[in-house]
Design a protein around this nucleic acid. Structure first.
Lengths: 128, 128
DNA sequence: TAATTATTGCGACTTAGTTGCAATAATAAG
DNA sequence: CTTATTATTGCAACTAAGTCGCAATAATTA
């Protein structure tokens, strides 16, 4: 199954690149001003994940967020970094710090999903 | 708003205690053999979380899992440990290792949610 | 230019979790 | 023990996220 280059895909990829953060399906849909169907966006995002150009994070709000793979496309491709989700402004950003995890004997890791939620610097000062 | 002791609550608490793991609403409902309403289970679990006797983990499957707070009831009460979710048998267990996280300046953590999914020892050997 | 088939839009569907409301039952007050 | 107060429960309806089947559209290849 080959891959085709389409306008929709390009737009979604742009959205992801422009925002240097992890964004939700909703954000993308909003940015595309409703010109693209919900289901399509989901499918494209899932495709990008398969292709390894994007990684998925599930927030502690139960929602999926997607972010461009930066320094891992060529590398091992395990994303052992955390994400910070701001409860106030809603942004989700990748934290640099890589985490070393000790799994019990015989356990095989497949997917790392680390999220901390709280208040980002801006919201801590602004909001209150 | 005070707290009342009810049969339902006791049963749910027992389920949580018996299973030394993080379990989903579904598991509890199953264990209670459908004698308790879905919504009630959710409400009780949320209550337990508020009271601080249980902590909630959101898996990378987007579902909520609940586990008794073991060595933190008296302590600081931040659960900086990871959870392992087995893709094959579905169990979710708390890992001991505590994680030290460096947040950017000014960021305030509120909730730690770490999950690694993969195959547990048993499933690695059994399943295939 | 035509044929192949990945992609898209639409609508219907699933699953997790929440909420309003009336009925029930723990607990406190008398 | 009886009554009053109100936390808790069950039910049904609802929301929101995400998926899926199918027919129509449009990249790519021949």
């Amino acid at each position: 199954m080959s891959v085709r280059q389409t306008k929709t895909k390009s737009l979604i990829l742009e959205s992801l690149q422009k925002s240097k953060q992890a964004i939700s399906h909703e954000t993308i849909q909003h940015e595309l001003e409703g010109h693209v169907d919900r289901a399509t966006i989901y499918r494209v995002l899932n495709r990008f994940c398969e292709e390894g150009i994007v990684h998925r994070v599930v927030g502690d709000d139960g929602k999926q967020y997607f972010a461009i793979c930066l320094n891992c496309a060529e590398q091992h491709h395990q994303h052992n970094h955390f994400h910070f989700r701001c409860i106030s402004c809603g942004k989700v950003e990748c934290l640099q710090q890589e985490i070393a995890l000790n799994l019990p004997k015989g356990y095989k890791a497949q997917n790392f999903n680390g999220v901390v939620s709280g208040y980002c610097d801006l919201c801590t000062r602004t909001d209150k």
